[in-house]
Design a binder for these strands. Structure first.
Lengths: 250, 250
DNA sequence: GGAATAGGAG
DNA sequence: CTCCTATTCC
C-alpha cells in the first residue's frame, strides 16, 4: 500500500500538481492538507477512482483523505479548525494532520500550537490502544532537528524550530510513533517545505516539516519513504510550497 | 497597415489571448482597452517588436497603443479616467477609446457618458481639422442600431441601446466619420461583446459595441474590417468578454 | 510569494 | 461571470 501526503495550499489551485503526483506515484491513499475549501467545494469528480473523505473549511486549513478502497472515517479531535481526519483501512488507522503554524514564541498562536500538540498526542495514545496499526501523516509545522532545516543558525528560534515546539513533537512520538524518514535515512538532509519568498523555493532552502509517523507495531511493514520533488523542481506553473511525501507499506 | 482593437478586460489576465491575436493577425498597430493597470505595471517586455504608448490607470479603464513603427503620442482629452490615447503615424492619427459604460438612464453615470461623448466629439472635430486622416478605434459601449444587438426587444432601453446613447454616437460620426464595418457590411449581424453571465458568451448573445471609425478622407484606403472570434470560440481558458476587431488599411 | 476572501465594477 | 483591490494567513 502506497500512502502519499501533500500540503496542497489550496486544492482548487493545485489540481495539475495532484494529477502529476497521481500519474507518478499512483498512491492507494492520498492525504491532503490545506485544501482551503468547504466540503461542497471539494473536487470529488477529479478523484475518479477514489473514495474521498473530507474535513473542509472555508479559506483556511481543511484536510481530506482519498482512498482507492473504502474505509471508515474517524473523528480524531473535536476541533473548531479543520486540521485532522482519520480513516480506518483494514486493520490500519491513517491519520491525516495539518498542525497549527504557531507564529513566534510568546504569541497566542504559539501557545495554541503547543496546546494542540498536547491534545493531539493524548488522543493518539488513546487511538493507539484501539487500533493495532497507526500511520500519522501530514504537515506538522515543526522541524524535529537541526539537520531538518537548511540553515539552523539563521532559522534558530523561528517558527518550527523553537525548543518548545520540538519537545511537543517529540512528546507525540514518545507515545509510540517513529519518524519513518529519519529511521530509514538517519543523516539525509531533505526538505518538504520551502518559503515562497526570497526565492528559497528555487535555492532548495527549506525545512522538513511534513512527516510520516508509524506506530512501532507498523514499522516492520514500512518499506520506504521519500519526498517527491519533481513537481516543484520542474517549476510547475505554480507549485505548492510543500512537496508530497510518499510512504510504501507492505 | 493592419490596425487591431481589443478590449482585453485586464491585460495581465489576457496575455495568452493577445499572443494568439498577434500570431493570427500580426497587426502593425494594436489598440487595447481596459488594461486595468498603471503604466509601470504594463507588460512592455511582452510586446517585443512594438513601441508601447500607455495611458494606464489602477484597477479600472486604461488604454494603450502598441505600434511596430514609432509614432507621436497625442493627448486626446484632459481626463480623470484613462480612456483615450492618440498616436500619429505618418499622416494618420489613430485614436484609441474606451468610452464610459454609463449605467441605466437617470443615473449619474448615464449623464456622464453623454457628456463624455459631447466632449469627445468636439475634440475629434478639432483633431480632424489638424490631421488629414483619422482612425478612431475602441470600445464605445453603445450599439448603434437594432441589428447590432442579439435581441433588440429584450435589450430595449438597457445599457448601450438607449436612444440618447445612440444619438450621442451618431453625433460623433456626423463630425466626419464612417462606421467602417457597417459601411462594408450593411446587413451583417456580428457582435464584439458578450455578457459573461447567463452563458451569453457561449450562445453568441452579444452586441456590437467595438468599432473602427474612419474619417471620410481615409475611407478610400480602407480595405476590410472583421471581428476575430476564434479566440473566444475556441473557449480559450478565460477569454475577454470582447472580441478583437481588425481593420486593414492600404 | 501565493491562495483565498470580501467588495466593487463591468 | 470575471476582473481588480484589499486583507489575512502561511
Amino acid at each position: 500500500m502506497k500512502v502519499a501526503t501533500f500540503n496542497v495550499n489550496g486544492i482548487r489551485a493545485r489540481l495539475d500538481s495532484i494529477s502529476e503526483l497521481m500519474q507518478m506515484e499512483a498512491p492507494d491513499v492520498l492525504c491532503l492538507q490545506e485544501i482551503k475549501c468547504e466540503n461542497d467545494l471539494f473536487p470529488y469528480d477529479f478523484f475518479k477512482d477514489y473514495q474521498c473523505y473530507v474535513n473542509g473549511q472555508k479559506a483556511y486549513n481543511g484536510v481530506s483523505i482519498c482512498s482507492r478502497k473504502e474505509g471508515v472515517p474517524v473523528v480524531v479531535l473535536e476541533e473548531v479548525e479543520s486540521r485532522t481526519l482519520g480513516l480506518v483501512l483494514g486493520d490500519t488507522l491513517i491519520v491525516n494532520v495539518y498542525a497549527p503554524h504557531g507564529d513566534l514564541r510568546g504569541s497566542p498562536r504559539f501557545f495554541q500550537k503547543i496546546q494542540w500538540y498536547k491534545a493531539f498526542s493524548k488522543r493518539m495514545e488513546e487511538l493507539l490502544r484501539r487500533y493495532p496499526k497507526v500511520l500519522i501523516v501530514g504537515d506538522f509545522n515543526i522541524a524535529l532537528k537541526d539537520n531538518d532545516v537548511w540553515d539552523p543558525i539563521l532559522l534558530k528560534d523561528t517558527v518550527g524550530t523553537f525548543p518548545e515546539e520540538r519537545e511537543a513533537l517529540k512528546a507525540l512520538l514518545s507515545v509510540g510513533f517513529v519518524d519513518v524518514f529519519r529511521a530509514i535515512y538517519p543523516e539525509k538532509v531533505q526538505f518538504t517545505w520551502w518559503d515562497y519568498r526570497q526565492g528559497r523555493m528555487w535555492k532548495n532552502q527549506g525545512m522538513r516539516i511534513d512527516y510520516v509517523f508509524s506506530s512501532e507495531t507498523l514499522m516492520p511493514s514500512i518499506e520506504d519513504v521519500y519526498v517527491v520533488e519533481e513537481i516543484r523542481k520542474r517549476r510547475n506553473p505554480k507549485p505548492s510550497d510543500h512537496a508530497p511525501v510518499v510512504c510504501v507499506v507492505k
